[in-house]
Design a protein around this nucleic acid. Sequence first.
DNA 1: ACCTGAACACCGTTCAAGT
DNA 2: ACCTGAACACCGTTCAAGT
Lengths: 233, 233
Amino acid sequence: MAVTRGATATGRRRAPVTRERLVETAVAIADADGIDALSMRRLGQDLGVEAMSLYHHVAGKDALLDAVVERCVEEILAEIENEERVAPDRDWRATVRARSLAARRVMLRHPWLPSVLQTRTSMGAAVIRLHDGVLGVLVEGGFSYDLAHHTLHALGSRVLGFAQEVFTPGATEEVEIPDPAMMAGLAPHIMAMLASVQHDGPELTLGWCDDQTEFEFGLDVLLEGLAARLART
Amino acid sequence: MAVTRGATATGRRRAPVTRERLVETAVAIADADGIDALSMRRLGQDLGVEAMSLYHHVAGKDALLDAVVERCVEEILAEIENEERVAPDRDWRATVRARSLAARRVMLRHPWLPSVLQTRTSMGAAVIRLHDGVLGVLVEGGFSYDLAHHTLHALGSRVLGFAQEVFTPGATEEVEIPDPAMMAGLAPHIMAMLASVQHDGPELTLGWCDDQTEFEFGLDVLLEGLAARLART
DNA sequence: ACCTGAACACCGTTCAAGT
DNA sequence: ACCTGAACACCGTTCAAGT
């Protein structure tokens, strides 16, 4: 907190630009002035550095947005962990509900997050952990891998704002899957699910997801729930 | 189809730029090269005109996108009308399902549409008509105005990609409501719903919607439907 | 009434140059 | 290793000028 610009005792002119500070400042700009205000030039300015210097810490604007999203999803994970330390051992329905509301709370702190989320084509470690966690909750709650998988899609588009895949056909093919070693440690439940699905080869793609099927699943579950509400009237 | 550029028999140099041609060409650009390719300069180029000339037909880029969205939602309405001429008189559930799938079909033709839809703050006549129609189907199917209203929100964010309101608090306040006269002719069911809601004044805002309530409604209906699926396993 | 061209204040990014 | 400054190819939009 002490000195961010100007001379220090050691003679350094300002706090060095780290990836950490860079992402933190980017989020602050988007929170304060909206996502459109987040440009490389503005970010450089707020860090006391020329815009071009940022390319030493981040590959480009796209990588910056990836990092920004990652940081916010980590916020969601932290929110969930805190909450479940206080109230552990709830059933799948209460847990998924609470996690969805936690995600929403973070989205309300960063209202630009859903729109940025939808532009991302790669999944970071935090997004994978978030999905893996919910998958674990569902399976432990008695869901088959198949039903849990559809549920993840349905919750994803509704709760996390990952609506993109629902509408862009073939988008899942373009999604970059991180390296298998990382996945194994990060996403045990996803790995177990993939293992349980008979597939031709050992590729780690989620390519068997069918957009139209997932869309209809989510729609039909919703219609079913609505019919139940109507009947209860 | 005959001549779009060059001299004609009458001596006119090219087809005049109309709002119709302008919107049509804008959609074609987005379809062909993505929404990022749709710039005022590119649009002018494809119309054989300087970019600045476009401002005589449309107020600016924002108005252009409004018009583009309007045109696509009109496509959804046409799709629905065609389908229901063939298969009329289905119950609310089948009708809402079919309309959602029709919307999705149009979205698949214009994959950029959901993302643009989410950036709009005003509702055009087509969007209002689409919502009013579904509202009518629900009410006729036995829904109370209250349940139908929540349902519209739940379907909207899932099916039409209107996820924005779900995450941005106060966004509904910023939504511009067209003039009442237009509404009366265009949206009889919405007007009836508003009339049935006891409110302090005659303002036509949808300001009584509460984002958090709508989010939880959609989430809980989904969870309820999922629990039903699980029980059926 | 419609269209033009120069200009303004922005973008992301490349590249050669500095320390 | 980190940062700079000029440059390139773009944006949306304003404004005075043309026909």
